[in-house]
């Protein structure tokens, strides 16, 4: 169908585009995506004596993720310690997502309803903490809640308590820290969705006798749903893989899966188990992302249909 000149122009264009993208792709293959494939291989090997692996194929690491063998009677049972860590990771990640939504939605709404020239400033105020070192922000929370920290010092100084309240190294501390750290990730996509919301629809809802909350629930929330899903994924995924926040605020006992993985490469000296755990985490995260893609493309389909 196409003339020779046309075909030449198209294939020329495609080759040029791929050449332009090639350096980025090679860099990513070497420094990010490629090594992930090696992790898959490692999860099927035996641990080395001190660290690393010995090159012997086995499913031990994957079995060890969920099951453990009793040292005395050699029976297999569920690896309770592992499951407790998975459960804590899942629970804290879901709670973090809920908390950031409860706080983030009013923020996003408030910002989106400011005059156009003020919105950029408010957004900038949300963005600064987002790009500020995660370690510094977690460290700031540590300074506030530790036993010699701001809150306890103030309460003791005021004579309200004699002994510091133990806030650090609890699940609540980790939850608070993660909510604090990931809040901007919820606010930004919610804002983007609410900003596109046509407020004449709200007027129409009020005109048809909706109360404020009914208008919110029946009109706004369904329309901004893609923003809610995007924000939830953006918070849930890094929460699940969190490492710094649970390490600093949760301490050694309140580990999440990220810290548990690190442990296998440090004191645990079980690289294959660490590799298998990493893959498990990656699979769950990619599953969540696929779900997101499906939800958002469903929406796109509805619009075209």
């Amino acid at each position: 169908m196409a003339s020779a000149a046309e075909r030449l122009a198209v294939s020329d264009q495609t080759r040029r585009n791929w050449l332009l993208a090639a350096p980025a792709l090679i860099l990513l293959l070497l420094g990010a995506a490629g090594p992930l494939l090696v992790v898959v291989a490692y999860s099927f090997l035996k641990p080395g004596e001190f660290s690393g692996v010995t090159w012997e194929f086995t499913f031990d690491a994957w079995i060890g993720v969920f099951l453990q063998q009793d040292i005395f009677d050699e029976t297999w049972g569920l690896a309770d310690a592992h499951l407790a860590i998975f459960w804590r990771s899942a629970k804290l990640s879901v709670l973090t997502t809920v908390m950031t939504f409860v706080i983030g939605f009013p923020m996003a709404w408030f910002i989106a309803t400011r005059p156009a020239n003020k919105r950029a400033i408010w957004l900038f105020l949300v963005t600064i903490p987002f790009w500020t070192n995660l370690l510094i922000r977690t460290f700031a929370i540590l300074e506030v809640i530790r036993n010699q920290g701001v809150i306890n010092s103030a309460l003791i100084g005021l004579g309200l308590i004699d002994e510091p309240i133990q806030m650090l190294y609890t699940d609540a501390a980790v939850l608070f820290g993660m909510t604090y750290v990931y809040l901007p990730l919820m606010v930004l996509p919610l804002y983007a969705a609410i900003d596109r919301f046509d407020f004449r629809l709200a007027e129409a809802a009020f005109d048809l006798y909706a109360s404020r909350w009914k208008m919110m629930r029946r009109v706004v929330l369904p329309i901004v749903r893609p923003g809610i899903v995007a924000g939830s994924i953006l918070v849930f995924v890094p929460s699940l893989g969190a490492y710094v926040t649970p390490r600093v605020l949760g301490g050694g006992k309140n580990m999440m899966i990220g810290n548990f993985i690190e442990l296998q490469f440090g004191q645990g000296r079980n690289w294959p188990l660490g590799a298998a755990l990493s893959m498990l985490l990656l699979i769950v995260v990619l599953g969540a992302l696929l779900l997101y893609v499906r939800v958002s493309s469903d929406r796109a389909g509805e619009r075209h249909g």
Partner: peptide
Amino acid sequence: ETPTEGQILIGGADVTA
């Protein structure tokens, strides 16, 4: 755009390509 078929002439000269 390049035509799929045919020619474009400007001032009598073929400029299709």
